[in-house]
Amino acid sequence: MNHPAPSLLKATFAIVRKDLAAEFRSRELLSAMLVFSMLVILIFNFALELDVKVRQSVTAGVLWTTFAFAGTLGLNRSMAVEKDRGCMDGLLLAPVDRSAIFFGKAISNLAFMLIVEAIVIPLYAMLYNEVRIFQVEFLGVLLLGSIGYIAVGTLLSAMSVQTRTRDVLLPILLFPVAVPVLLASVKASGGIIAGADFAEILTPLNLLIVYDIIFIAVAFMVFDFVVEE
């Protein structure tokens, strides 16, 4: 019998399909991220006393903080499940390129994060009567920021689940390295909400794209070293 190794694209999407199918059956990851996001926004409401005036300046910050926290929750869980059920060993034994595992996990993590964002953003808009977040540019920044965050996060969560302190380590590893992506996203999306010129948000946007490209490339290159036994 001769099974040729599946192509990178095929293998990647097989992993994505597996993750999404498992998640839509159990829904444990998405529901945890969603409930957590809503709680964070609720707490911010009281902690910052989000009245109309304050809201204008902090909406971008509140949303990004929420997504960053919910993101670590999802990243940790998604990788821990692989590890605990022995799926990771199975994937590593399978005749697929290791990069397929990275891209597969990254894409499904990104999908989870985008689903959470797609639910939280309309809710936020409704709760705080903030319709300016429904702009193409704002959603574009959200996508770019999520991509960068998830690329680094997937790599680091693959590392953190293999340590003794795995429950607490991911945010500690991820946040300082992800500072640029969070700040650039807050800067760009804050500018969009405030109705700034496109020229003004161009620089953070460019930095965001640069970060995305560099970190996707690096994460993809070093992922092999992280999962190797």
Binding site: V152, L155, L156, M159, L173, P176, V177, A178, V179, P180, L183, A184, K187, P204, L207, V210, Y211, I214, F215, V218, V222, F225, V226
Partner: peptide
Amino acid sequence: VYTLLGGLSAPITFMV
């Protein structure tokens, strides 16, 4: 791997 990520991220942080 982590020192590599840190070394790349610090200059971008400064620019941002």
